[in-house]
Simulated assay, not measured.
Amino acid sequence: MARDELVAWLRLLEAPRVGRDSARKLLAAFGSPHAVIAASEAARRHVVGSGAAASLAQVPGLEALVDGTWEWLAGDSQRHVITLGDPAYPALLLETADPPLLLYAQGRTELLHAPAIAIVGSRNPTPQGASNAKAFASTLSRAGLTVVSGLALGVDAAAHEGALLESAATIAVVGTGLDRVYPRQHRELAHRIAHQGLIVSEYPLGTPPLQHNFPLRNRIIAGLSRGTLVVEAALGSGSLITARLAVEAGREVFAVPGSIHAPQARGCHALIRQGAKLVETAQDILEELGCGTPAAAGGTSGAADRLADPLLEALGHDPVTLDALVARTGWPAQDLNARLLELELEGHVARLPGQLFQRVATG
Rank of each mutant, 00 (worst) to 15 (best):
R306L: 15
R187C: 07
W72R: 11
V59T: 12
L62M: 06
L336E: 08
T126H: 13
S225I: 01
D318S: 10
H348Q: 14
A282S: 15
S149H: 01
M1W: 12
V47S: 07
E287I: 10
A152Y: 01
G51Y: 12
L229I: 02
Q358C: 06
Y182N: 00
A143W: 08
D4Q: 13
S259I: 13
S141P: 09
G85C: 04
A338G: 02
L140S: 03
P183D: 13
G236L: 04
G267Q: 10
A297F: 05
R226I: 00
G31H: 12
A350L: 10
E280R: 15
A29R: 08
G177I: 03
D284F: 01
E5V: 09
L65S: 07
E248P: 08
R3F: 03
P209F: 01
V155Y: 01
D335I: 09
A28Q: 15
L13V: 11
I117Y: 09
A249D: 05
A2W: 07
I119D: 02
L153M: 10
T146N: 00
A314M: 07
A270F: 07
R187P: 01
A222T: 01
L343T: 13
T139N: 03
G51D: 14
Q128S: 14
L145V: 11
L178W: 14
A255K: 11
P310G: 14
V66W: 12
A308Y: 10
N124D: 13
Q78E: 10
S131P: 06
A262M: 11
A262S: 14
S50H: 11
T69K: 02
G250C: 11
R226A: 02
L56Y: 06
L240E: 06
V320D: 07
L164G: 09
L235G: 00
A246H: 05
G61L: 07
A8D: 15
P99R: 11
L112E: 12
A324P: 08
V155R: 02
T300P: 05
E248W: 05
E166V: 08
P99K: 08
P87I: 15
T293I: 09
S239H: 01
E346I: 02
T176D: 07
A137P: 06
D86S: 12
E342Y: 10
L164S: 10
R142E: 07
V279H: 00
G227Q: 01
I193Q: 06
L278G: 04
I171W: 03
D156C: 08
P263W: 10
L92R: 13
I193W: 01
L341D: 08
S32E: 07
A222V: 00
V326T: 09
A105S: 05
I193A: 02
A276D: 03
A39C: 05
G121M: 04
E161W: 13
V231G: 00
L205C: 09
G121C: 03
L65D: 04
V320F: 10
E14C: 15
D67K: 15
R217I: 06
L93R: 15
